[in-house]
């Protein structure tokens, strides 16, 4: 009980700090363009107010696309001192409802999405204000899968946080992951089983990769997203945010 209260207090402090920094100096945001294969794609970039080289976070949206909530996550990270780039795998499309979210995620070509996250990583490494050895990725749902794909294909990725996502099972793929991994899952979601999560953890730990997974009881998928009126669980969401924030500050040398 005491622990819960302490956690709640801590959450308030973090939120207060976050809110304060947002009020004090809202991070600069802009739409940036870069090449992904033969295409030019756009991303939503949020920058910290302070000058200098920063750690960076690549943000991969969930099934609904690059929504206002995802943009808000980029701003929250920027307020904490990260260069935050939210990719747009859907190329401008944002789902207005669940059905559209399903259609968009079903229509997403795997190979293009992987190209896009790799291109975003390359874009970040080339920026003057980014310390290229301190780049992490975070993703929800479909975006979690592609954040992990980036970890598989890009050994320089230092940290990878995922929520509510499928987990890779291929042993060669798992062996390619160098990034430290954080996972947040709702206990009541239907697709990802505890045994899948365990197998994933075991495979990474066997290779000396740190992996920290938390399963939230009373939560299903999408519990971190306030726009999802059905699944949003404010307390679990606050806890997941604190975990992600501490995970990145530990692994990206903040």
């Amino acid at each position: 009980m005491k622990r819960a209260r302490r956690a709640a207090n801590l959450a308030c402090v973090y939120f207060f700090c976050g809110a304060l920094s947002l009020v004090a100096a809202p991070p600069k945001t802009e739409t940036v363009e870069y090449a992904s294969g033969s295409e030019t794609v756009r991303g939503f970039l949020a920058l910290p107010a302070a000058p200098g080289r920063h750690a960076a976070i690549l943000i991969v949206h969930g099934d609904s696309g690059l929504t206002a909530w995802i943009q808000e996550q980029a701003q929250r990270f920027a307020a904490q001192g990260y260069v935050a780039l939210a990719v747009d795998l859907y190329r401008g499309e944002v789902a207005a409802n669940d059905e559209e979210a399903h259609e968009l995620s079903r229509g997403l070509p795997d190979d293009r999405a992987l190209r896009d996250v790799k291109a975003a990583f390359t874009y970040l490494t080339a920026r003057q204000d980014v310390s290229s050895s301190r780049i992490g990725a975070i993703g929800w749902q479909t975006g979690g899968w592609f954040a992990l794909q980036l970890a598989i294909h890009e050994p320089r990725l230092a940290a990878c946080a995922v929520s509510d996502t499928a987990l890779p099972t291929d042993s060669a793929d798992l062996a390619s992951i160098r990034a430290q991994v954080l996972g947040n899952f709702g206990a009541d979601q239907r697709g990802i089983t505890p045994s899948q999560i365990e197998a994933f953890e075991d495979a990474l730990r066997a290779r000396g990769i740190q992996v920290d997974v938390k399963i939230y009881s009373g939560a299903a998928g999408d519990f971190e997203n306030p726009a999802d009126k059905v699944h949003y669980r404010p307390e679990a969401a606050a806890d997941a945010w604190i975990r992600a924030f501490s995970f990145f500050s530990k692994n990206l040398g903040k």
Partner: peptide
């Protein structure tokens, strides 16, 4: 697993490891 509700179906789809 079989879904009859689109929300459940979507959850099953996004939990599916492509590999």
């Amino acid at each position: 697993a079989v879904a009859t509700d689109p929300g459940d179906a979507s959850e099953l789809m996004r939990s599916l490891p492509h590999d």
